[in-house]
Amino acid sequence: MYAPLAMAPEGSYVVVEEIRAGPGLARRLAELGIMKGVVLRVVKSGPGPVIVERPLEGGSSPSPWRLVLGLGMAMKVLVRVS
């Protein structure tokens, strides 16, 4: 079962499964690196706005730049907790 990113537990790794947004938003998300199949680490969890980072493959070091997703956005990104 997929849950919205807003509900993912803090510190977990999630895989993006679906983006329930219109083309404009989906594109914006994609441009910033959030698309189906992408692995994210939840740095700060909801309920509320969420902070995620895209860990670089193979590296356990955090990638320096993170993204804040507002509450509305975080509800539209459905993920699978791994």
């Binding site: 706005p49 804040v68 507002g70 509450l71 509305g72």
Partner: peptide, 12 residues
């Protein structure tokens, strides 16, 4: 319309 919230880069 639902508030889609925002997405913003969080720089170091």
């Amino acid at each position: 319309g639902p508030s889609t919230g925002f997405i913003m880069e969080l720089p170091p």
